[in-house]
Each structure stands twice: as structure tokens, then as C-alpha cells.
Write a protein that binds this DNA or RNA. Sequence first.
DNA 1: CTGTTAGCGCCTTCAT
DNA 2: ATGAAGGCGCTAACAG
Lengths: 341, 341
Amino acid sequence: MGKKATILDVAKEAGVSVATVSRVVNKQGGVKQETEARILAAIEKLDYVRNAIARSMVRKETKTIGVIIPDMTNPFFSKVISGIEQAALNDHYFTIISNSHESEAREEEILDHYLQRGVDGLVITTANETGHQLDAFMKSNIPVVAVDRQLKQYEVDTVLSGNREGSFEAVQHLIQEGFRRIAIIRGPQHTTPGLERFKGYLKALQMHGIHMEEELIVDGDFMEESGYQCIQRLYHMDHPPDAVFSSNNLMSIGAVKAMKDLNWEIGFEVGFSGFDDIEIATFMEPNLTMVSRNMEGLGEVAFKYLQRRMREPDPSRPKREYIMAPSLIVRESGRRLRRHV
Amino acid sequence: MGKKATILDVAKEAGVSVATVSRVVNKQGGVKQETEARILAAIEKLDYVRNAIARSMVRKETKTIGVIIPDMTNPFFSKVISGIEQAALNDHYFTIISNSHESEAREEEILDHYLQRGVDGLVITTANETGHQLDAFMKSNIPVVAVDRQLKQYEVDTVLSGNREGSFEAVQHLIQEGFRRIAIIRGPQHTTPGLERFKGYLKALQMHGIHMEEELIVDGDFMEESGYQCIQRLYHMDHPPDAVFSSNNLMSIGAVKAMKDLNWEIGFEVGFSGFDDIEIATFMEPNLTMVSRNMEGLGEVAFKYLQRRMREPDPSRPKREYIMAPSLIVRESGRRLRRHV
DNA sequence: CTGTTAGCGCCTTCAT
DNA sequence: ATGAAGGCGCTAACAG
């Protein structure tokens, strides 16, 4: 047990200097075979493990990246994180993850911690795209990559999905199935995904000469409960929609639950499609057509971008923006006749 | 930008010594109001943020805990992690998360990193409960808490669920609905959840005087695909089961998908229940009865245990074991007559 | 090839 | 109430 062995202990044990030990520990070469063997033996004997803290201190790098997302229990984010973590670990970077719970204040706290801690890079899906919670962090010159939501105040590399295209396709799909009174459950309009998906919806209506109706636009907050509430509202309208497009996965789940509770039969009485695939989509009768994206892929790209910035810091290099195209998974969700029960 | 300000810069700016600055930064008191104000001003002016690395170096603590789970895209784990991270952040601890992908080797790599990095504590759901991948880590005397799976080689605090009780209830439920040829899709038998849930199954059969049939026991690996395959196998048997119990969430999803593809109607032709609730359970017709547990709660408890060990290190304090009782969510999944189509 | 040594930024006695 | 100075463990010149 005792104190942990240090590089000095190893040096003594092997009868060499710390510099030489450092050389073999860091595989820098230039050490005689025999000496190296002796050092390795000493390391083994003393159970020496290099202290990364001390190393970071002098190297001024922590080999750690910070990740901030709103909620890691949302499958979308857990997959994105997984992609980041995977790519990072392959490059010998650690990943510190924190949930902001969509709170700008919490996000700022976390950023402050990251700053003290000294992360080498940051991947963030911010709680507020127009806020100034990164002001302090930005002064540090630590590379930042925004994922899924932009950081409007700052010039940083950004990884997004084709939000507008995706929702356009999904809504157009409903139109092609013959639906006309199409409602949208929107996400927060101050977020890129919320706004862009709404724009895609508008574009689809417009392209097909459908007049947009104010009352068919209802607002959720990307959480399940709001999806549920929105459907309740739409269902009880004087003149309900004949189809609904939901702006994200969690709201889709809530929406579908509400429809079930209301006995509002998808595919028969009402059409449905949504952004981001959900497990349930396959099990509904009929199956649901959804917009799908490569979430782990988004995470990987985010890390790649960050990696480049970490390796070649050059604040003048213009920001890059990567937009990953989503795809529409068309399932057997055509409009159909009511079943004979 | 220039170099980051250090404690020395602040000291100079405020015309005091580093010791005094350190005192106010760490809120140790014993500094004249006026001096403190001057220091605070200097900190503000220089955008000083304390370097946690240097601090860790001398304090010998990192305020960081490591978490290793097999796969964070599994909703069970993402929720457990969320619980841990939440509790940790409230106590000003950071959480480093890594996926082992069920690989013992990967796990060892991660542990080595954690060791070098110097985490203050570790929460782990190990890839191999009987392996020796923690041997090196254990020598360090860093507190460890096992979650969901035990670490048989070592005496560490452990947080588990009532695996046996949960599956017992779920299987008994099937029996009470009138099913008799009940198959089980098992998880890996070298894991606590895999083994214990199987035991619960056996106990339920036994208690109700049902003979266990070898051929109704099929093995999965806790992943979705294996659940799918197992159902295929069971369905095509000469004498298929009349009900199936699945040992975890992902396999349940695979199983239900297979049943759908096979047109093997749950609730009509075959009964079904499983361990860990899944979103789809609510949408199936009939709804699925599942074992449910408080996942974020598990994470919180794990951190609490770890916290105690970190605060009061005392290797002689006996290990604690916490077992959180799961609950059976009984949904309308009774055996019923075949629909008239 | 190998050794010496000066920090990295901070905390913490020990003095004053 | 404040300052001075010795490390924490390691890396990176710079010397031999």
C-alpha cells in the first residue's frame, strides 16, 4: 500500500535518473535496451503508474474533452455522446459529460467547472443559442464545437442535421398520402432544430399549395409531456387536423400515447409523422414514417472537428459547418380505410 | 489573449502574497475585508480562474469520479448514469463516463486511464464479474461501488436490484394468467442479472408446480438482436411455448419485433412479460406487463455509497449491499380469446 | 545514451 | 492578518 510510487522511486530502484524513466514511460526511444528493461522491471515491481495530473500540469493539456448536452436520457443525445466518446477514446481523449437540463445557469456552472479543470476541447448542445453563458469560457481560447444547436454569439465549428429538409420530407410525405389539414407540434422556436423544422413544414405546405392555418401550429418544448398535451389540444379542436407532424422524438412518444388514449387512430383517422425515429414507430399499426439520422455519426463528426482544432489551433481558420442529411424512413403508413371490427 | 492569469498575477495586481489570494479563493476566511475586496477586484480584472489541475496536484484529490458501464445507449444505463451525475454534481464532483462495450479488455484500458488520471472514486457495471481486470486498480485504494453487477473478486459496496424477485413476479404473473409452457430468454449466466433473473423464473415455476423444460430455456446476450433470434427459435420449435419471459429491455424489444414479424400475436397466441420496462410496452395490444425499476434512483444510491467511502476512507468498514426492489407494472395483458378478424 | 535542473500553479505550514 | 518558501510529480531543455 504505502504512498504511491513516483517516477523518482522508479528511478532510484532502477538506478537511473528520472529523465530516463520519463523517456521510457513516454516511449520516446533513445534508451539502451538493457536500461529500459531494468526500468520496466522497477515499474512492475513498484506498481508505478504515471500521474496524469502532474503531466497535465507541465504539458498544459489534459487529454480531456468536455461534453454538455441538455439531457442524456434522451436517446438522441445518448447516442450522440456515445459517438463522441468512442471517437475520443480512440484518440486517447477522455470525455467528461454533464447535463444542463436545458438550464442556461446550470450550463454556465458546468462551463466554469470545465474551465477550472482545463478541458482541451468542448462539445456542446447549448441550452440557449442566443445566450451569453459561454462568454467566460470563450476567453480561454479552448476549441468549441456546437452540435445540433448553434452558438449564435460565437464563431465556432458546428455540426447540424438537415432539419429543414427532414421535416419538409416528412410533411410532404403526409401530403402525398392525401392529408391536407396538417398540424405541427413545434419545438422551442429559439432553438435551431425547433425553428428549422418548422420552416421545413411551412415549405412543404407552400410547395403543395396548402394554406397554412395558425390554429394548427401548436408549441411543445421537446419533452414527452408536451407532445401529449398538444395532441389533446388538437383533438379537441372544433375542426381538428387530419394529420400531425411532431418535431422530435420525445414529443412523438407523448403524441402517440395521447392518440392511443383518445382512441384517435393513426393511419385511419389521423396521419402522423415525426422528426427522429422512435422505437415504437415499428410497432404501431400502421407503422410510422419518421425522419431518421445517424446520431452516433453526428458525435463522431463533432469530435473530428474538435480534434482538428485541438491539433492545429488557429483562431483565424474560418468556422466550418457540417450538415448531415437525415433520411425519411417510409413505412407502411399510407392513409387507409377504417378496419371492419 | 496572452497567457492565463495565475494566482501570482493576481497577487501582484492586488499587492499581496499568493498565500492571501489562496485564502480568499478558497474561502478560508481570516483576511481583512478590504484586502479581500482588492483581491476580488484583481481576479475580476484579470479573468483569473483557479487551475484545478495544480490544485489536484497538491491536494491529491481530483473531485472527479469515474463511471464505467457497458453501453450508454441502453436506456437503463443512460438513466443510471444520469442519476449518478446528478448526485455527483450536487456535491461538486465531476463525472467521467466510459463505455466498455462489454469488453473486459476495454474495461481494463479505461481503468488504467482512470488510475493515471486519478479519479477519487469509481462506479462500475463490470463487463465480467469474475474477471481480474480491476486487480491493478484495486491496489490504489480508490473507493469502488458496483452497480447492477457484482465484483465477485473484491469486497466493495454494491447496489443491485431485486433481480430474482422481479423476474419471479413477472413469471408468476404469466402463470396466473393461465400460461404453462413458459420459455425464458436468459441473459449471460456469468452476470448477476442474467443468473438471478433465471433463478426467479425457476422459483416461479417451482412454486406453482410447473415442470421446467430444458428446451424452453434459450440464451441471449442482453442485446436486441439476440432477443429477436431467440423468438425465432422458440416459434419454430415442434412444440412452442405458450408464453415468454425476457430477461432485459433490449432483448424484449428484439423479441417483440420478432413476434410481430412472425405474426405471433402476443396476448392471443403467446403470453409475454419482461424485465425492465420498455416504451413499446404501452403501445402493444394488449399492453405488456413488465418489471420496472427506479434507474436514476439506483445511480443516486451508488453515488451516496461512494461519497461515504470518499469522505471516510476506512478499508476495514464492511461492504454494504443495497438492493432496490423492482415493481411489476401490471398492464392489461391477460390471456384473451383470439380476435375475429 | 543518460543525468541535472528549472519550472508548471497551487496549497500549506511556519514565521512574522 | 499576511508573507516566505518548500514541495506535489512530471517534462523538457541543456549538458555531458
